[in-house]
Design a protein around this nucleic acid. Structure first.
Lengths: 156, 156
DNA sequence: GTAGTCAGTTTATTTTCTGGACGGACCATG
DNA sequence: CATGGTCCGTCCAGAAAATAAACTGACTAC
């Protein structure tokens, strides 16, 4: 199966993975949410080839996840910013962070223990971790609490 | 930067991406949460080479996300099941699904419109979409509601 | 006019992915 | 007991993607 075939699947996972399902794309998005905006900064922080950096950024712009915004003329320079669609990926990144914190952050008392980053909710002032809840009854959700069935966009 | 280097980074995204940051791994996990368990079924549903299927499943088992469970002898056959750690990836997959539903499911009234799958919360009986909330005050969260700073596991 | 910043592109090499054939352990049918 | 079918992989050679390092180009600063 090719990259393009993925985005044609009647599956929201496949369609999204076709856009962000790539090591470096996910790392770029992490940096976007940390405030990185310029080509040189992405390239330096990620330690990957300029080729890949350029290609992935272009892909994200084409998909409408990032947009190029000029920040100076002579010479014309752009920075990459998250669009509204890009902001919608925040739950994805935070879910990934939360998994990493839980399983790869090391035990307390050890060297390098604890999460590398803390997240503070401005409104309540607390350090938090994200909790996935039901949009209807607001209860926390796990895989075993859910039944899945075909929806209107399913293919026969 | 190589695959291995990613898992050494003091970053929960990088460490998690080192495990699941791959097109096919994410598709395999999707199928796991839909109840797929056998090699032949993964292979047929994904339409990818047997080589990759075998390699990715092995990787997930090595990481403790899946476990092999015998379901018959003569000949010995195994199926792949999610571990507890694997179940912790549910919020990641659901976040991806939710993004796909929002941006790639098509508009109502169009052909192929609406989400391909519906998710029903058993406890309340409603079809839902996942909402990310603060573990402390239970309010819904967006990227702009959060401040990030270095945690105990950060590197100097 | 020499050096530095910033955003890429080009090139050649290495690594990874791919499809398709093959292997092995069984079972079911005639 | 021979033929075909199921199931889980492995092996191989060609195709595709990732890599590092050098290069372009448009400026600014000294």
């Amino acid at each position: 199966m090719k990259w393009d075939a993925l985005s044609e699947e009647p599956c929201s996972v496949a369609r999204t993975v076709a856009v962000i399902g790539d090591r470096w794309t996910l790392m770029i998005l992490r940096d976007c949410f940390l405030g990185v905006r310029r080509f040189e900064d992405f390239q330096a922080r990620l330690g990957i080839s300029r080729t890949i950096t350029a290609e992935r950024l272009k892909g994200l712009v084409d998909e409408g996840v990032l947009k190029k915004v000029g920040y100076q003329d002579r010479p014309t320079r752009f920075e990459y910013r998250l669009t509204e669609k890009g902001h919608d990926l925040y739950p994805v990144i935070m879910a990934v962070v939360n998994f990493g914190d839980r399983h790869y952050a090391g035990q307390e008392g050890q060297d390098g223990a604890g999460p590398p980053l803390l997240h503070r909710h401005k409104a309540c002032g607390c350090d938090f971790h994200p909790v996935m809840t039901c949009s209807e009854c607001h209860a926390p959700l796990g895989a075993r609490d859910v039944e899945t069935r075909a929806g209107p966009g399913a293919r026969a």
